[in-house]
Design a protein around this nucleic acid. Structure first.
Lengths: 334, 334
DNA sequence: TTGATGTGGTAAAACGATTTACTATAACCA
DNA sequence: TGGTTATAGTAAATCGTTTTACCACATCAA
């Protein structure tokens, strides 16, 4: 069974292709097609189950009603949840989402952008990698709406939606200090994006503001792409070699590795050791005792991203870039 | 900056469009294009950064090098991980993946299939929903490779890759019985797909084989699309009204809700209550005590799916359907 | 009666590639 | 010599839409 084309419909209805096209695209009235013809054609379309070929349509119009979403790793629960929320919201507005993971790898990210470009996606939502600046600038030059989220790039002017990482991190450390903690460690990654450096800056600033000294040996920077076993080893070393009474994990997957370490070395979380994890995860709520976390407002981030994107898509002129910083909240559990 | 077309390259190189196309598609040799021309054109392509328009290409060739992946919910860690693995493997073979979630909703699933169809995806990987039989049959009639995974549909002949749910569930119950448990509950969902019914059958069969009676009031079927709060309420009721010394949760998200309940009603997991969760999750390893789980071999499932798919894609003739059942393993933790 | 305006529609170009069928010349060889 | 084959390449059709420019006829106002 060959798939039907607009031509088949035109033949069946005994009208021109043009007429069918106008009807499909809701331009019938405006193009003064009679009510009778509209009805007839619509009936035939309905009965035959004809669906326009989106590829042909995209080729002609240059757009696709598709939004490309590029994240670091779709299997990370933070991104998976954001992706799902964005997908839902976009879907309701008639846009489809296609997504892919960069694995924090510039080349892969560039390839993805190229793939999306050659598929003529209408807009991009990107959680960027350092090194992608030029590619993103080209998209913007091309007049494609681009929204960065989760992490910003200093050297590129674009729309951005993200949490206030500095202040969330600062508050976390403040809360440790309020509990009387003095030996506060930070386990973070070595990826050089604003989101991560801000968390680091917040940590540092809070220490200094409260008269504590910043000690390099209490900060562990895990190499991004390494396997979990090595991460666990490094964290284990940190805990074995330093006296630590509080620790902030800068990402949820680091916190998970960290909790595994604590479990294995039988270090109890509680009075003698406080833990805060960045980005919530089911495991933290269920953990005994509950693990305090910095919660990013996923729903709000997704909604803001989509809103920004749609306003760009629907406006003829180029809108000024917006940076939306949404507060993250510290959830204390125990 | 307008994007370049094959015509621009042809003009620059002073050859015909045909020649450029042959070179791009590696058919230069076969079509006897001289080495000199090949070099020249390749240089120009390289320098100009020309990338073929995939939309035009798809329109002409009728395929897209894209595989459509349809899952229940991309934010569920099981699907997110499978998706990521499939994405990686497909990517290495030159295929891109686009994915979307059905939310276990037939209409949404149908819409997704239609969207993929009109984008001419080359093949489909589907974790199906009951009610999708006819749509899947149409894809197969259309000669598109289709692989079902995670769940099978009885009324449709297709390739299928999944774990041995019956036996995993049976073994879980066996292990409870070996520990001397007698009041064994099952918390499952009401979605009517083979995967879920098999888990239920395994539960039932094991009870009967070991001389225990199947008691309906120990089986809780949670309505699929309900919010977590109601789920928690129902599970709480189950634990409050029945004497239970072991429980099997048929999905990881149900187990997470269940663990929240146990935590809130302060029921300790251990000697007096054993728990097994279906599909692993970070939270289970970290939980104190560790939660035993049925682990599906994600890597193997993904690999099998892709292998099956690629063999279909590359074979001219239609291959017979295959059903690959992969054993799941019970991981005992405490 | 003429020019403008409205109504109801269509033919054909365009989007950017792939692919089929063709041409022109050279080389070969019997 | 002429017929065949190889070499090097191209023109044009095609995929399925959207959109521009146009046509034919009717109506209306001046």
């Amino acid at each position: 069974m060959k798939t039907l084309s607009i031509k088949d419909i035109a033949v069946k209805a005994n009208v021109s292709i043009t007429t069918v096209s106008f009807i499909i695209n809701g331009k019938a009235k405006e193009k003064s097609i009679s009510e009778a013809v509209i009805k007839k054609v619509e009936k035939i379309i309905e009965e035959s189950g004809y669906k326009p070929n989106q590829i042909a349509r995209s080729l002609r119009t240059g757009n696709s009603n598709i939004i490309g979403l590029i994240v670091e790793d779709i299997s990370n629960s933070f991104f998976a949840k954001i992706a799902r929320l964005i997908e839902d919201k976009a879907y309701k507005r008639g846009y489809k989402i296609i997504y892919s993971s960069t694995e924090n790898n510039v080349e892969k990210a560039q390839e993805l952008i190229n793939m999306f470009k050659s598929r003529k996606v209408d807009a991009y939502i990107i959680s960027p990698v350092k090194g992608l600046e030029e590619d993103i600038r080209m998209l913007i030059n091309d007049n494609k709406p681009v929204i960065l989220f989760d992490r910003n790039l200093r050297d590129v002017q674009a729309n951005y939606v993200g949490a206030n990482h500095f202040s969330a991190s600062y508050q976390s450390i403040e809360s440790f200090i309020a509990q009387g903690k003095r030996n506060i460690a930070l386990v973070t990654t070595d990826i050089d994006v604003q989101q991560i450096t801000e968390r680091f800056e917040g940590y540092k600033k809070a220490l200094l503001d409260y008269g504590l000294t910043y000690r390099e040996e209490l900060v562990l920077k895990i190499h991004f792409n390494q396997n979990e076993a090595s991460t666990i080893d490094e964290i284990k070393m940190l805990f074995n070699s330093e006296k630590i009474d509080a620790v902030l994990f800068a990402t949820n997957y680091l916190a998970i590795s960290g909790l595994k370490v604590l479990k294995s070395i039988k270090k109890k979380i509680g009075a003698e050791l406080s833990v805060i994890a960045y980005d919530d995860h089911e495991a933290f709520e269920l953990h005994t005792p509950g693990i305090s976390t910095v919660q990013q407002p996923l729903e709000e981030i997704a909604e803001t991203v989509i809103k920004l994107l749609l306003s760009q898509l629907s406006s003829k002129s180029i809108l000024p870039n917006q940076e939306v910083i949404i507060p993250a909240t510290l959830i204390i559990r125990n």
